[in-house]
Each structure stands twice: as structure tokens, then as C-alpha cells.
Design a protein around this nucleic acid. Structure first.
Lengths: 89, 89
DNA sequence: AGTAAATATACGCCATAGCGTATATATTGT
DNA sequence: ACAATATATACGCTATGGCGTATATTTACT
């Protein structure tokens, strides 16, 4: 087990994941259609994923994250450390 | 944006996520049935998720990770840093 | 080896994610 | 205000995830 230095955002719910995706997309100045094309999905699906109010498939999320060149990490809970998505609002 | 200190494992595919989940479950000495009950799923579903050969729903994955008290993080790609799931084999 | 426990599969069923297509509703720029 | 672009919804359809239940198959223990 190695401790690593990384920059990431905690997500617990589909809505939070959607928000992270939307932020990353806008950082890249991509439209939902741009992202949809790169992820092999449709614009409407990106919209739904970003809103996060309807469940999505893991594969779709992974495709979107890969299209955004974002990493997906699973790890032990690190209380107090890091940036929680809720802090962003 | 804050840099944080964390321990996590990179995952890119459902199979890798399944492996992470299985490792965490065994660390806790839980059976698939134990995990299934805590996550509100069935043993068979846990089996499928751990194998990762069939797509799953994001909600199911999140439920499992929550049951394992694991964090889910999305972040910028940090080349070379951290522990890649592939290194585990 | 033999038994018990754990894990992997199977089958019918139901709910729903995402598609294709289309349109309504923001949002942005001039 | 207007036009153009971007985002949110809608509808029928198809594919499939997970359930409930049950049973193979594998693994662990004496």
C-alpha cells in the first residue's frame, strides 16, 4: 500500500458525480454534444448524467470519465482530508 | 483546488472496480452474502460485480462502496503517481 | 476424503438506461 | 430584441441489470 499525492474530488452520489463531470466538461469548453461524441453517448444522455437525478450505468460513467481524461479512484476513507464536492457550493 | 493526501487505487474498467471491491471485502472477512446484505443487493449480484464481466449500474457500485466504507474519487490524471490496479498482479 | 461454506450460474420476470429522433426551453453573443 | 447555440425533455423501442429462487461449482476445514 502506498500513499500518494493526488488531486481529486470526493463523490458519494450520482448527482455529485454528475457535477464533477459537468465542471470538467466546462473547463475544457466542451458542449454536451462534444462530450457525448467522445464518450460514444448522446447529448441527452450526458444531460441526464450531469443532472444525476436518474441512475446511470457504470459503463456510461466510465466512458465519460475516460473521455474527459479523468481518473477514477477508490480508496480508504480519509476523514477531513481532501476536498468534498459539497464544499464547492 | 486543493492537493490532498490520500490512499487510493486507480480503476478504469468494471473488472478493476470489481477487483478492488473484492479485495476490500476480503480484508474485512466478509462473505459476498454479508456484503450483499449491507449494500441492499443479492449475493449473486455481488458475484457479478466482482467479476466485472457484466455491466453494472452506478447505483449498485456506489451502494457497495458505501457498504465497504470506501471512498470514490474523481480527479485529474496523475501520471506515475499512485498505485495502479494493474500493479497488483 | 468428506462435509460445510462460499462463490458462480441459471431462468423467468420486471424495471429501466440509453437509443433514435424530435422538440421545448434556456443560454449566449451581437 | 433577435438569432444562434446549448441544454433539458419527450416518446416509443430495445437491451439488459437486478430480483427471486434455485442449483452448480469451487473453496476451506477437519
Amino acid at each position: 500500500m502506498a500513499y500518494i499525492y493526488c488531486m481529486s474530488t470526493l463523490a458519494r452520489t450520482p448527482k455529485q458525480i454528475g457535477t464533477i463531470i459537468q465542471r470538467a466538461r466546462k473547463q475544457r469548453d466542451w458542449t454536451q454534444s462534444d462530450l457525448a461524441e467522445r464518450a460514444g453517448l448522446r447529448q441527452g444522455t450526458i444531460s441526464v448524467i450531469e443532472k444525476g437525478d436518474k441512475p446511470a450505468k457504470l459503463d456510461s460513467i466510465l466512458a465519460v470519465l475516460a473521455a474527459l481524461d479523468l481518473e477514477f479512484r477508490v480508496g480508504e476513507r480519509s476523514k477531513g482530508a481532501g476536498q468534498d464536492i459539497e464544499e464547492l457550493f
